[in-house]
Design a protein around this nucleic acid. Sequence first.
DNA 1: TCTTTATGGTGAG
DNA 2: TCACCCTAAAGAT
Length: 282
Amino acid sequence: MPEGPEVRRAADRVERAIAGRAATAVHFAFPHLKKYQKRLAGKLVLSVETRGKAMLIHFDGDLSVYSHNQLYGRWYVMARGRTPKTNRSLRLAIHNGERSALLYSASEIDVIAASKLEAHPFLAKLGPDALSRDLTEDDFVRRVREPRFARRQAHALLLDQGFVAGIGNYLRSEILFVAGLHPTVRPGDLAAEEQRRLGRAIRRVTARAYRTGGITNDLALAKQLKAEGVRRAEYRHHVFTRGGRACFTCGAKIERAVMNSRKIFFCPRCQPATGPRKQGGR
DNA sequence: TCTTTATGGTGAG
DNA sequence: TCACCCTAAAGAT
């Protein structure tokens, strides 16, 4: 169940397994993609790119395999010919002499000419990747003030893949906590220093999630709680899924709400809706 | 064994 | 804003 950091980790595994050598065979489960099997067989795999939650496997000869895991897709990297113990349905397989990269359950798979990537309906809409360095703090300040983003509330803005790509529902809650911002603030209204702080939080939290495989909480604290026998779900995040429990930072009761049809969690004390932080707004 | 939920996204209205 | 698609796992019964 992936957000940008998890997709990038999967891409790393796939890249290690198949990039830099020829794919001996490629298999697609979807009938309309079968015609590409022959065209891709024997081709060198150049690289495995991610853009937000989308993955692109670039083949020599101008074709790229696009995939989006949505909620359910899952990559497995196996020794060639082995299959994972699962009841999932295989949707895509890329083999070489030693390994197989297998994508199960995903429904969004396509083959795109590399020259047409920028015209792809989903890719074309994506903002800069949260994991990349494409967006400096000053770039971020400018972006958040663009008319199309300036009036939006933070909770909605962070889920918009056209604003920054790769943030999903757990990162949204966690980034806002780290930035100290209430979900309903309008980032466009904030002072530049707070806008920079939000930009930094986006980068820091996604980078940490990438490094740790999804732990966004303070690492020392997470480690300590783990050592005390606390379950992963309980120490993983600052606020996400922790509704009704005490904030690790201030002890206040974490609140749970639904925004954009998705659950969001925040600390009412660490993320005040109004107060000193709001100077500069409105 | 049933029901609910999930870290996503689209398209209709 | 809602219904819907994809599918698995957790929770309820």
